[in-house]
C-alpha cells in the first residue's frame, strides 16, 4: 500500500514537473534540438535541475544500500557499450526530434495532447512491444 502510494506521488510530482518545466510542449523540446535554427536552451535547465538533487540522492541511496520500504537499491550494471545501447539511442534520438516527445511527456500528453499525442503513444507502445523481436534479429545479424 505504502509502495503504491509513494509511486503515485512520484508519478504525480514527475508529471507536474513536466508541465511546469514546459517539456510537454513538443515545440520547446524540438527547439532544444534545433541548434541550427531558433535554439531554445530551456531543456538544459530542466535536465540540470533534475540531475542536481539526484546526485545527492544517489549518494544517500548507495550508502544505505536499501530503500526506506526495504527494497535493495539497484546495483550498477556492468559497463558495456553494446550494439543495442548504441542503435537504440540513435533511434530514440531520431524519433524524439521528429515529434518532440520522449516517453514521459508522451504519457503525460494523454491528458492534454489530443489525438496527436494519443497516436504517438500508441505507436510508441507498439514499438516497445516489438522491440525484443527486433533486438534478437539485430544480435543474430
Amino acid at each position: 500500500m505504502m509502495r503504491n502510494l509513494s509511486a503515485l506521488f512520484a508519478g504525480a510530482l514527475f508529471g507536474c514537473g513536466l508541465l511546469v518545466s514546459g517539456m510537454i510542449d513538443t515545440a520547446k523540446v524540438q527547439g532544444w534540438l534545433d541548434i541550427f535554427g531558433a535554439w531554445d536552451p530551456t531543456l538544459a535547465f530542466v535536465l540540470g535541475g533534475a540531475v542536481l538533487p539526484m546526485i545527492f540522492v544517489w549518494r544517500v541511496a548507495e550508502r544505505r544500500g536499501m530503500s526506506i520500504l526495504g527494497t535493495p537499491i539497484p546495483d550498477r550494471v556492468p559497463v558495456r557499450f553494446d550494439p543495442a545501447l548504441i542503435t537504440g539511442s540513435v533511434m530514440f534520438g531520431a524519433g524524439w526530434a521528429l515529434a518532440g516527445f520522449c516517453p514521459g511527456p508522451a504519457l503525460a500528453s494523454f491528458a492534454y495532447g489530443g489525438w496527436g499525442g494519443a497516436l504517438f503513444l500508441l505507436a510508441m507502445v507498439a514499438g516497445m512491444v516489438i522491440a525484443p523481436a527486433l533486438s534478437a534479429r539485430l544480435t543474430k545479424a
Binding site: 548504441i86 530514440f92 524524439w96 510508441m124 516489438i130 525484443p132
Partner: peptide
C-alpha cells in the same frame, strides 16, 4: 507521429 513513436518505442527498449 507513427514513425517517431515507433522509433522512440523500439529505441528506448533496445537502449
Amino acid at each position: 507521429l507513427i514513425l517517431a513513436g515507433l522509433l522512440v518505442g523500439v529505441g528506448t527498449r533496445l537502449a
